[in-house]
Amino acid sequence: MSALSSSGAVAAVPGTCCASPAEAHAMGSAAAGQVAKMLKALAEPLRLRMLSFITTSSTGEACVCDIAGVADVSQPTVSYHLRVLKDVGIVTSERRGTWVYYRVAPEVREAVSTLLQSFAPSALDARHAARTPLTGLRDVDATLGRVSDDLVAKFPHLAADVVLRTVRESYTALVRNGGLRAHLVPTTQSFAEQRLLDIARAGADRAARVPQVLFVCVADAGRSQLAAALLRHHAGDAVLARSAGSAPAGAVHSAVRYLLADLGVDVDAEEAFPKPLTDDAVRAADVVITMGCRDTCPVLPGRRYEDWVVGDPALASPEGVAAIRDDIDRRVRALLADLLPTPAPTTPDDLSTYQRSTP
Rank of each mutant, 00 (worst) to 15 (best):
A228E: 09
A228Y: 04
A229E: 02
A229V: 09
A229I: 08
L230I: 12
L230E: 09
L231M: 15
L231W: 06
L231E: 01
L231Q: 04
L231F: 09
H233T: 01
H233E: 06
H234E: 14
H234F: 15
H234K: 06
A235M: 09
A235P: 08
A235D: 10
G236S: 03
D237A: 14
D237C: 06
A238G: 01
A238I: 05
V239Q: 11
V239E: 11
L240G: 07
L240D: 11
A241F: 05
A241T: 05
A241V: 04
A241E: 01
A241D: 04
R242G: 07
S243N: 09
A244R: 12
A244G: 10
S246Y: 13
A247S: 08
A247P: 01
A247R: 10
A247F: 07
P248H: 01
A249H: 04
A249G: 13
A249K: 00
G250Y: 01
G250I: 03
G250D: 00
G250R: 00
A251I: 08
A251L: 02
A251Y: 02
V252D: 04
V252C: 06
V252M: 07
V252L: 06
V252Y: 02
V252I: 12
H253K: 12
H253Q: 05
S254G: 05
S254C: 01
A255K: 08
A255R: 10
A255G: 13
V256A: 03
V256R: 01
R257G: 06
Y258T: 15
Y258M: 13
Y258V: 15
Y258D: 15
Y258W: 13
L259Y: 13
L259K: 15
L259G: 10
L259W: 14
L260H: 05
L260V: 10
L260C: 03
A261L: 03
A261I: 02
A261M: 04
A261K: 03
D262A: 15
L263K: 02
G264N: 08
D266T: 03
D266I: 02
V267R: 02
V267P: 00
V267Y: 01
V267Q: 00
D268H: 15
D268C: 03
A269W: 06
A269Y: 09
E270K: 01
E270F: 07
E270R: 07
E271Y: 07
E271T: 14
E271Q: 15
A272H: 11
A272F: 07
A272Q: 09
F273D: 12
